[in-house]
Design a protein around this nucleic acid. Structure first.
Lengths: 225, 225
DNA sequence: GGACACATGTAACGGGTTACATGATTTC
DNA sequence: GAAATCATGTAACCCGTTACATGTGTCC
């Protein structure tokens, strides 16, 4: 049996499918391709191309720059076939790591300044990513993108990226504003206003029929026997 | 030196800070706390509590259920102090894993049906998460949440969650509609329309930035590990 | 009294990360 | 011609995963 490929493998295959790259270029150009939707360390890419080429999915061509070797990889028919088969398998769901939310939960342990700093960082990170998104947009409008012939597909992805970041950015802004309007991080007098805000959130709540009567929460101190 | 804690460690600490839990409850209740913003396997939690308690940040109490032991953990002062110190460090940026976008990029290698299936899966995943979000909302409105006294904080997080999912869901819907309006996945005659759509995306491009003076961006902080 | 879900973990593998090494090119 | 930066990787540790193991209440 061939060893199992990971999503990272397919991400690399997908990038090489566009055109051949040296490993270094591959690792660098991930920024323009998958850095924000499938972030991985550079060294993972180096390892991945070797695996893929040992399996015959990539074709590695050694070149020489002075006394240094470098390898340029292109995708093979077998590689394209692997991608094709992958497309028929179930997709893994959208997932995120958002440390700032964990900090928010314990924010009252720290100072107001700290949580404001955290949220400001989030806002700035998002701005930076949006700046990058604007760059990509401009590249396509100028007609100079490497994947210019694929605009009809890439546009869908850029749409996703921009929409999502605008949402996160807007959330950061309004949350900053809310917290800055507080005197401190204590609950005093804040919960009622918060309930009002929760009530207005755009999501359906389960109907009372389905509403499970509160299950007596698991006992923290079970009886001995 | 004490071993370095990871964000997962702090996530566990943060959850135990709410009130004591047995390890099993901890692992289960992650769904209601961090599953969607900091997803980790259950076994990671089991290992983490042992580490944290060996460091004195958690206090583990052995109890007996029949002949089986179980451990109930509560946070120590030292644990709360660790959380406090953590709040002063730079936050790690929002990150996501979104395999569907990689598939979208290579979609023309496969069939229209396949990419439609993938996007439908995304839409359904989002619906399920939104259903959960609605449940949480209802719990707060009913006043029965375990963190009822923290509504003023949790509301901010629920806001984030719902906003983000609505954005992803809306994107999935309109992308499905777009692709279903196509005869096939070839670029024929699609790129011009796509450029028009890109032009309308709500993000500043470098050119427009040059024309519109923008306040100097705050410096980005370094990445945490 | 057998089946089955719940409860409570452990073992082991592998992907991802950080740290390091070394040659080539540019800058001053 | 030294320093800094770019280019091209390798090594090793550790977090996160999947798979498994075993005890306990419950249902019919």
């Amino acid at each position: 049996m061939a060893p199992q490929l990971t999503t990272t493998s397919y991400a690399v295959l997908a990038q090489v499918a566009v055109h051949p790259w040296s490993t270094y270029e591959l690792a660098q150009q991930r920024v323009r391709y998958f850095r924000y939707v499938w972030p991985r360390a550079e060294s993972a890419i180096y390892r991945e191309v070797k695996r893929l080429s040992s399996m015959g999915l990539l074709d590695g061509n050694k070149e020489w720059v002075g006394k240094r070797a470098r390898t340029v990889y292109s995708i093979t028919d077998k590689g394209r076939e692997a991608l094709r088969e992958w497309l028929a398998t179930p997709v893994s769901p959208f997932a995120m790591d958002f440390e700032a939310l964990i900090r928010l939960f314990v924010a009252p342990l720290g100072t107001k300044e700290q949580i404001v700093t955290t949220l400001t960082q989030v806002r700035d990170d998002v701005r930076e990513m949006l700046r990058f998104g604007g760059e990509v947009k401009q590249e396509f409008l100028d007609g100079i993108s490497v994947t210019q012939d694929q605009v009809y597909i890439r546009a869908l992805a850029v749409d996703f990226f921009i929409s999502l970041l605008n949402t996160v950015g807007a959330w950061a802004e309004r949350t900053l504003a809310e917290i800055e309007s507080w005197d401190d991080l204590s609950p005093d007098g804040k919960n009622e206003r918060a309930l009002e805000k929760i009530r207005e959130l755009p999501v359906l709540t389960p109907e009372s029929v389905e509403r499970t009567p509160v299950p007596p929460r698991t006992q923290l101190h079970p009886r001995r026997r």
